[in-house]
Amino acid sequence: MKSLAVFSKGTSIKSKPTAATAFRVMVDKEVADHIRSWRLILLLVLLVLTFLGALYVSLSNIRVAVSNTQDPDSTFLYLKLLTTTDGTMPTFHVFLNFLGPLLGIALGFDAINSEQNNGTLIRLMAQPIYRDNLILAKFASALILVGALFFTLVLLMIGAGLCITGVWIEPVEVLRIFTFAVLTVVYVGFWLSLSILFSIAFKQTATSALAAIGVWLFFTVFYQIVVNLVIGALVPRQAILTEADIVGYNEMVLNILRLAPSQLFSDATTTLLMPSVRSLGPMTMEQMAGAIPAPLPFTESLMVVWPQLSGLLAATFLCFAYSYYLFMRREIRS
């Protein structure tokens, strides 16, 4: 017979576990899991390669871009670093437009259903933790990693810029670049919460991954085509339209396109990284009259992209709320 001293040894006073500590423990474990996984390493390599490639192209063209006096943004060297290209390769923020979803989906598509398939979910649920803390921990841990990743990249870029060019960085550039990083994290967060939603809705990890990738492909490839087709069929010929009508229709098409998160993201990043962009819709000659092509202050740019940012946040919260709804009353069996 073995001794059962284990049971009485040590402090017998149970410290009351609070929800906050359990949540921290879960986030710690999830972050550790991600870091140890091959998946994150692969994504990291992909992202860093993209970043280096984009940086290389922009660095080799930076002299031309900055000396172009026609361009009102030419004084912002560090923003130029992120947006300059010679056409051989897309810029970093355009890359992110489709790498972001991949990152979000890859980190979240098997969040819940793999635990269920491995039989760890029921074991976890038998511990004194709140159910919503689990999905929140999954979401938070992936977001922490993504945030750390993008801030590191951005800081690396600034550092490399400082070393190579020796040009002093403007505070407003720092602000814009950091806001860009935050925006990217929000964008990835949307895809992350969407893929977590699918991981709750579907039992098989393959199904949930496919569903998330399907949504992503739909929005990046087919959505524009479908919208253009439908609009082309519905809108009357241009010859009989007044100028105001055309502007109105254009506005409408843009708004429909903005239902796609990638459109929101590209709108927002363009505005943030190119300070001279002052409107995202079409502008009439009357509106343009008297305007001097000059960069907007940071707060004004932020105002322009505020709807985009809140749209992305809203979509993220919507997905998260729905996954919460699905998960809270789900019966968990092994």
Binding site: N118, G119, S334
Partner: peptide, 8 residues
């Protein structure tokens, strides 16, 4: 639980 699983 009957089919028990651990983090592998």
């Amino acid at each position: 639980p009957d089919s028990i699983g651990f983090y592998e």
